[in-house]
Design a protein around this nucleic acid. Structure first.
Lengths: 201, 201
DNA sequence: ACCTGAACACCGTTCAAGT
DNA sequence: ACCTGAACACCGTTCAAGT
């Protein structure tokens, strides 16, 4: 059947298949998702330009899940906190995707609604435009780094024999992922917000 | 010449060649570095188990450049600041390597001296063991995320037409990488330290 | 111990051929 | 417009053969 009357593929279908493969195996291949979709690898090129575009489609899919709240009656720092949690939560749904996204950082499209909301919040907090940009970048780095932590294996903090007393005590408190990663993210977010509140006076 | 009396290769030589390729092209291949070294791809396997080990060797090379200071007469927060800068500086030497390191986060070996020093500093600051672990994880996420930012292309903050007023003003302050990334890192580090000082009372 | 040469399975991508 | 089949260049890895 060279060409069905009804198209079998679409960018959405390809994106979903690729995301499923990444969730399951940590990576995807063109032949792999083609097989899952009952199609030949070359068929994919009728809908996407190549592997790179599929990665960008997955990035867009994740970003589209970030819901940016409208105006609310709350302090700017509470807005930042909520946006940060929401941002990270969308990454957390597909932890193994994050490493694939890091080879090319792109801040465009859907995500811009969130950047705008963050800019407004920091601006409300009294930050100068230059500091607004720096603060957003900080949050971005922190959220991305934290998301990478989610995909990390259990034994990230091994090598206890090399630890000093302070580090050994810290390691003794550790619990399995993703609970540890969650706790660490919340603590770090509190640190950042406390810092911004200080900087904003 | 099937086998020279003096070995041509070593893990160090292979690591350096791979690092050079990553710096230049953002990636490396087995045939690629073999050619640079005037050798056949299969020869590499006499010294490394494969591509994955070469990546770990590069990680080790970068981590080995992190110099951890001995005891000094300074506040714990100053120790943390200095370690964070040093940590990030070692990453910054090979920005394009960072994406290759993110598919598998490992905190072992050489880096442990730094983690120990950080644990001691936060412990001196009065943090509980659980919070020490969280604080180190926060710093780790932030430094890694910031390092990724270094490898980002210039037009990371494009799409100005979608920006609201606050975001537009922030973008107007932007300067080329890596100056922007440097500024953002320093601002973020100040935020974190201010936050930790607040949390530590 | 260490480099070579040949081989294998696999990948991403292209493109003319079909409907 | 969209799927197929064949083809290409390339990759990572293995392994017997050489010294």
């Amino acid at each position: 059947m060279p060409r069905p009357s009804q198209p079998i593929l679409s960018t959405a279908i390809i994106t979903t298949a690729a995301l499923r493969a990444v969730d399951a195996a940590g990576d995807f291949t063109m032949p792999g998702i083609a097989e899952k979709l009952g199609v030949r690898p070359s068929s994919l090129y009728n809908h996407v330009s190549g592997r790179a575009e599929i990665i960008e489609l997955m990035r867009g899919h994740v970003m589209a899940e970030v819901s940016v709240p409208g105006e609310r009656d709350e302090r700017w720092s509470e807005t930042v906190t909520r946006l940060a949690r929401e941002y990270r939560r969308s990454y957390a749904k597909h932890p193994r995707l994050i490493p694939l996204l890091t080879s090319q950082t792109v801040r465009t499209g859907v995500a811009f609604a969130m950047y705008n909301a963050l800019a407004q919040a920091f601006s409300d907090g009294g930050f100068t435009p230059a500091d607004v940009l720096a603060a957003i970048t900080t949050l971005d780095s922190f959220v991305l780094g934290s998301a990478l932590d989610l995909a990390a294996p259990e034994e990230v903090w091994a090598q206890v024999d090399e630890a000093n007393d302070a580090m050994r005590a810290a390691l003794a408190t550790s619990v399995p992922n993703p609970a540890r990663a969650d706790t660490a993210f919340e603590f770090g977010l509190q640190t950042l917000v406390a810092g911004w509140l200080t900087q904003a006076q």
